[in-house]
Design a binder for these strands. Structure first.
Lengths: 194, 194, 194, 194
DNA sequence: GATGAATGAGCGTTCATTCAT
DNA sequence: AATGAATGAACGCTCATTCAT
């Protein structure tokens, strides 16, 4: 009985935490972390301000939890690329990347913005570093397999390229030729024959 | 006499505005726009809080003026690249870019961060768009001259690459292999022979 | 069966109430009433926040019950002094007093602090009044027996003296010459010969 | 002109600080420090909440300034007792003490209450210690002059006695025989003949 | 032109208390 | 009897902005 109650409570907790983090993601990604108040988050989540503090110690810790959540989602991406054929892997990656920044533009922008606040949020720096290394490694392996010249350096170029394109798209939006860039990139890197 | 007094006043105005904008740049670039208070700006500028409002309608308008100032500075850069030899122009540009993000990292970071706040600061979007076009045109012209294949698309790639490298450097800082990237880029694009 | 269940429940009630009051005493005396939250009391007692409100209507009523408990303990003290010899009674009293403020300094301090909050806690005023009278009476009787001159007034002096010494000790702590005061007092009042 | 403006501002500042500290003293002494909100202080002072923070860094610092003010007032008391005749000094002291706790009961109570919060307000401890020493020294000198036996120890008794009487009066108020105590004390210590 | 005292809305956070389970 | 999720009023404090001088 205790355990049933316990698990029932656990469900409630999860539900509330979910509502809060969803609301936070929605608001932070559309108006920015510092322009979103805890009151707004509570209202958007349909709960009281006080409840947030049952689950998170502070606004910053809530942000941290939210980011952690996003990271877990991203780790699944990396799992997807286990196939043998390097060219397919690259092409899938490219496709996914362009799809991602189109579909989750606001989230992507939020993360980029937070990444630039090094002195405010240490954990973001670590996360960015880690992500940078993971993608570098994954892409680097494919380029080596393909026999792309200067694979190591081209890899760093390629990751910078991705984030650069993302940045331009975040800022310029509909005026940015995203499709065109995608096709060109795929042709250049995935169709490459040495 | 009136005109002399007038011009004397003009001088004072310019001086005060200069002090304010310098202070704002210093503080915004090191702590961020939203984490800098008008009191701090006044203290840093060595003037009173009220005086800022003699010259600027609001904090945001002050930011706007500050950004405008920076833009004027940048336009001079573009003037520098008037030589005939496309390869020298590219190489100079590359060198200047890397020098710039190393020397003015904080300012660069501030601008990038502000650029991501589209809904807050409309003028940033226009500015970014304009800058994007200007560099695209300049670089595109050089690549065409060199006879670089797919010049138009490569140009967009190259500008994205720049901003991607800048972004990575802003985030990862000392762990980012900036010199290595610079040499590789120069070799790849400026030493290119068709 | 009903009565057995009833008495079983009674035991549980007593146990819970005991745990709560112990926790409250511990926390109120070390951090103060207004700096102790109900959550802290619940945690310290090892029970849930809600349970406290099964037994006490409010934080203040819980304080009231806690104070009542302490008072019952003190009444037992007064019982101890039934001997014939006034000088022994006085000496025992003095000794006990000094022992008490040394061993239960924090509790003593809490009570003194609460006593000063007349407008917040009416019951404290009554309690203090009662205590004042009881000790005055007890001490007065002894001084009369001894034949101490101005016994009645000296009694009031003596009770004030006690609380004054207590207060000084509470505030100055290790720098206060408690032992010295004790010996001097005993010599002055208990060794007195008319 | 600047100096005239400066001094005009200084006046305004002093006036505002005065209003704030008066309001704080009034409220802290009648309801207690932790039961008085900054909003209440502002309302009582007839100013806005924000203005308080122009002059004091925090609620605690405001308390500190208020206490300092009181201390300055008290130091003047000690100055008053410079006469030759020890018995007059003592009698004046006694009279002043009883007058003081009658006229400024609430302030006296507030200070006593704060003194008991050692862990919250360090500066109170120092102040209490200092005050304790000053009065001990002053009284001790008089008793020595009079030739009172055990002068040193009687001094400590006497200061404790004062604070004990004060404490009892603070708690029991109208039921406490203040006049009676005063007369008895004066007779006992000031009329003493060895 | 320049000052800085003053405002007040809003912030992040706390906590006594309630109530469905 | 017991839980702890949920509330909401209030707290101390900040800061862009105004305005009398």
């Amino acid at each position: 009985m205790t355990s049933r109650r316990h698990s029932r409570n656990e469900e409630i907790r999860e539900a509330s935490i979910g509502k809060i983090l969803d609301a936070a993601l929605e608001l932070f990604s559309s108006h920015g972390y510092e322009y979103t108040s805890m009151s707004q988050v509570a209202r958007q989540a349909g709960i009281s301000k006080g409840l947030i503090y049952n689950y998170f110690e502070s606004k910053e810790q809530m942000l941290y939890a939210m980011i952690e959540n996003l990271q877990k989602g991203e780790e699944k991406y990396l799992e997807l690329f286990k196939e043998d054929d390097a060219r397919s892997v690259l092409e899938n990656m490219f496709t996914l990347f362009f799809q991602e920044i189109q579909e989750n533009t606001r989230v992507w922008r939020m993360i980029t913005a937070l990444s630039l606040q090094l002195d405010k949020f240490d954990f973001i720096h670590d996360m960015a570093q880690q992500k940078f290394n993971a993608w570098n490694e994954l892409i680097g392996r494919q380029l080596l397999k393909i026999g792309y010249p200067n694979a190591e350096k081209e890899t760093k170029l390629l990751t910078a390229l991705f984030d650069g394109i993302g940045l331009h798209y975040l800022i310029i939006r509909e005026d940015y030729p995203l499709e065109e860039m995608k096709d060109f990139l795929i042709q250049k890197y995935c169709r490459y024959e040495n």
